[in-house]
């Protein structure tokens, strides 16, 4: 069954786009509801889990755009500026996955989303720009900025 097979994977995607587990679970429910109601639009030109991931990402972005899940009203924290200045290159070998995800969750939403879409979901800058209604240049700069901030946060740990 579709839900049993892919629910955990989709939950991982939801977790990446949400601030907390509760929101992620809501997104998962909404996402699967949408997947089942729109399953006819899946034409089989990609893997089903890729399509499902896209549906969930679109839903997450739409919800953010509509303000339905205003998970975070980020104001840029100066601690990121400081962290960026203090950064020293360290090996990542000893950094565990949960630490990376935790650091990701500390990033401001605008960087987190672009990083997720580009690095994990393999979307191009063009697609990201289209989905987020921003320019390609903004997408690139957000990615670059997100990398720096994430690196800074990981180095501090």
């Amino acid at each position: 069954m579709l839900f049993e097979k892919y629910a955990n994977k989709m939950m991982a995607t939801c977790m990446r786009y949400c601030k907390n587990q509760e929101d992620a679970r809501d997104l998962l429910h909404d996402g699967f509801y949408k997947i089942f109601t729109n399953i006819k639009s899946f034409k089989g030109d990609s893997r089903i889990d890729t399509w499902m991931t896209r549906v969930i990402i679109n839903l997450a972005l739409n919800k953010k755009r509509l303000g339905r899940n205003k998970y975070d009203h980020y104001e840029f924290d100066t601690k990121f500026e400081q962290a960026e200045a203090e950064v020293e290159e360290k090996p990542y070998a000893d950094i565990e996955a949960p630490q990376v995800l935790e650091a990701m969750n500390q990033l401001p939403e605008i960087y987190k989303i672009v990083l997720n879409m580009y690095a994990v979901d393999n979307l191009s800058h063009k697609d990201i720009a289209k989905q987020l209604s921003i320019s390609v240049g903004s997408s690139k700069s957000r990615l670059s900025r997100g990398r720096v901030l994430l690196n800074a946060l990981l180095q501090r740990k």
Partner: peptide, 10 residues
């Protein structure tokens, strides 16, 4: 690093 981390089940 991010990609690897995201492979870990939620």
């Amino acid at each position: 690093l991010l990609k690897r981390a995201s492979q870990v089940p939620a």
